[in-house]
Nucleic acid binder design. Structure first.
Ligand SMILES: [Zn+2]
Ligand SMILES: [Zn+2]
Ligand SMILES: [Zn+2]
Ligand SMILES: [Zn+2]
Lengths: 143, 143
DNA sequence: AAAAACCCTGTAGTGACTTCAGAGTCAATA
DNA sequence: TATTGACTCTGAAGTCACTACAGGGTTTTT
């Protein structure tokens, strides 16, 4: 199959496929007489595997390691575990900061009623106050 | 104050400070006789503001817009609202995909008991199966 | 025969930095 | 005084995972 067909079959962009080849994630395929890349089913499977790992947000370097495990089935499984654990840890860290971020932004958004100038805007006041390490007046509990 | 002191005061790396100057986020400061950058308190405040916005994961382009609002307090506040809303929307999209990711990775991790080879590893099997669009046997409900 | 659609290589751009090379300046020490 | 070490300067290149050209060649369709 040609590169466009592989693109259709997997949903991976043509440029991305060539990029993966250059980066050594998929092996260089044979070429037809006119120089076009000629892929087989092994390429399709490998590319699907890569995209599935990417959907789990694994960096390409880790996907390479993962492909190494696929190629060497006698290796110790503990390494695979560690790889997934690291990825999970990274995702959890980011998830935590995303949650905090959402909270901060929602609170910030609540500072603005509509229809006034920037000088009167609670959002801007809040951001400036926060940058100065001060708490906004609205956050001090009423006695 | 010199760039190293500003770095100490804000926790922003020296190279990052110079980068912000190059990108036009902070104005070029005066220089001392030897050519060293000489910052004042206005720079410190502006840099703190920028970092606070960055902590909210705003892109530099939006921070520039935000700084524009600070500089023009007579502008309409609605633009500020829209900017925050857009940012909040982006964060919520990413938060959602992060949650899904965490779930997928946890499930994947549960496929591996310890102490076997890669060939026997449920994680690898699962990834390969998923790449082929098949459901793993363990996911079919028992009758 | 002409046009559209496909393919090739190689380079450069994205965002928000980080790192490096190579050089100059300043305070404190041997 | 010489020299170490800490600080600063500029400009270029590297990071990640693509994405978008530019400038050609080939195949298929009209
Ligand atoms: Zn407002
Ligand atoms: Zn407040
Ligand atoms: Zn296992
Ligand atoms: Zn399963």
């Amino acid at each position: 199959m040609r590169i466009g067909e592989l693109c259709q079959a997997t949903g991976v962009g043509i440029e991305t496929i060539r990029y993966y080849e250059k980066e050594g994630l998929i092996p260089a395929p044979a070429r037809t007489d006119n120089g076009y890349r000629n892929y087989g089913s092994a390429h399709l499977e490998r590319l699907s595997f890569i995209r599935h790992c990417r959907a789990l947000d694994m960096p390409l370097a880790e996907i390479k390691r993962m492909l190494g495990f696929v190629a060497h089935p006698d290796a110790d499984c503990g390494d695979i575990n560690r790889l997934i654990d690291e990825q999970l840890a990274r995702v959890r860290v980011r998830l935590k900061s995303m949650r905090a971020l959402e909270k901060q932004l929602s609170q910030l958004r609540a500072h603005c009623g509509a229809g006034h100038t920037a000088a009167e805007c609670g959002i801007l006041h809040e951001l400036v106050a926060a940058a100065q390490g001060e708490a906004c007046a609205c956050h001090t509990k009423a006695p």
